[in-house]
Amino acid sequence: MSAIIETRELSRRFGQNLAVNDFTMQVPRGSIFALLGPNGAGKTTVIKMLMNMIRPSNGRASVLDVDSLRLGPDEMSRIGYVSENQDLPGWMSVQELVDYCRPMYPSWDTDLCAQLIRQFDLPLAQKIHGFSRGMRSKAALLVALAYRPELVVLDEPFNGLDLLVRDEFIRGLLELSGRTEWTVLVASHDIDEVERLVDWVGVIDRGALRLSESAASLESRFRHCEFTLEPGGQLPAALPESWLLPASVGQRVRFVESAYRDETGVGRVRRIVPGLMDLTVNRMSLKEIFVALARNYRAEV
């Protein structure tokens, strides 16, 4: 699968602070890629470098097969960008915003635009500066999707949105995904927001990409394991590296297995801890996997 976004050793320094450090990532074409990381991990900085809004200090990135520093009007007309930090022209009404944006895009789809306006329940005549945060996000999404971009870049699009608005937002994206050949890159600090959407996950921590993998692969290799040690039994001194966050309360031991295989997983645990009892192995949601990884990265510091 070819990459629609590719970065190589991308770095960005703000004074003494290295916000992004040797960030190398590939976003497969056609995927819905979630770039996850805690607040301050460097997600927004990466996205701004990809969109040529800020320059990298080192390294390079390509978007739609063009160097990010050379992104021009042709490429921008194929990218839809929504960010919580983006300024919308507040003095315009939604109708004026649509009228302003439409002539810039040869691929503008009037029917889709009308459908999105109905779906998001946007008041056409009201000025944007009077909008709530949720309405502003929906207006931004409207003028980022109505021209059917090849690549949609969403930077923390759900921040401050209530559950209902968030659900409408995600439903809108999902409905369009079913009908449109596009790639979506969504940066978020909360996987809850994007779990329904994504098929590929990247985890960024302290400016570096720690993981990039398909959601299916992650879900197949991560398991929450729990067992009881036999009376007098002890855990081996050296546990496998793939066992994340091992913890024990009395004789009860729990950990996250990050290299689980259906055919050999249980046998492997029994080999490492002979004589264990009540072994339970449970599948993990993407949210649980993300939390386990984040806690593990924090424990490494």
Binding site: M51, M53, P73, D74, I79, S83, Q86, C101, M104
Partner: peptide, 18 residues
């Protein structure tokens, strides 16, 4: 300032405008 050239949050930066 409506289409600011300072900072990275201006609306025009994400549009096909050079």
């Amino acid at each position: 300032h409506d289409d600011s050239v300072v900072g990275s949050t201006a609306f025009w930066l994400s549009r096909p405008v050079s």
